[in-house]
């Protein structure tokens, strides 16, 4: 049990430090790579809480697909690779830190006081049961989400495509 706690605290510490790096680094690629580490450590945390299916979905969808999309976005919008002093809006820095800090202290005050002495007892694997519940009781939202994905796909193609009509107008 002792080693389990040590591993958990280590993962939590690394999680916060990589997340800090995502929002403070002045290099866009480093920010995206730090987000990969943040998500991987979140996945480890989910594994420690014995929710292995969600951990694997996180790795597949986020690290496999979303980060690749982000890297595409960074490359296509020609954000200057390497160090970039223009990346942050320095005027907002103090205000942003004040707002984020106050939100953090408010949340942690409430959470620490509200869940004092609560412990989690992790059980074994639950993937089989999760699949049964997902495809019986939650089958309607499950199908609905697939339509949302289809709509996002069509919307993304429509938005990112070059508008032929506009190009014709320019030429005429």
């Amino acid at each position: 049990m002792e080693i389990f706690e040590i591993v958990t605290y280590f993962v939590l510490l690394l999680l916060v430090s990589t997340a800090v790096r995502v929002v403070t680094t002045s290099n866009v690629i480093h920010a995206a790579i730090s987000l990969v580490f943040t998500l991987a450590l979140t996945s480890v945390l989910f594994l420690l809480l014995s929710t292995e299916f969600v951990a694997l979905v996180l790795v597949l969808v986020y690290i496999g697909a979303v980060i690749v999309l982000f890297l595409f976005g960074i490359m296509i919008t020609r954000a200057p690779l390497g160090k970039n002093a223009e990346l942050d809006n320095d005027k907002n820095k103090k205000l942003g830190a004040a707002i984020a800090g106050s939100i953090f202290f408010l949340f942690s005050y409430i959470l620490v006081n509200g869940f004092e002495g609560e412990v989690v007892i992790t059980s074994g694997s639950s993937t089989e049961l999760l699949g049964e519940i997902l495809l019986s009781r939650f089958v309607f939202p499950f199908e609905l989400v697939s339509f949302v994905l289809l709509a996002a796909l069509i919307g993304g193609i429509t938005l990112a495509r070059k508008d032929e009509a506009l190009i014709d107008e320019d030429q005429v």
Binding site: T77, A79, N92
Partner: peptide, 8 residues
């Protein structure tokens, strides 16, 4: 609040 690049 702080980032200037939309992807960030």
């Amino acid at each position: 609040l702080v980032r200037r690049n939309a992807v960030m």
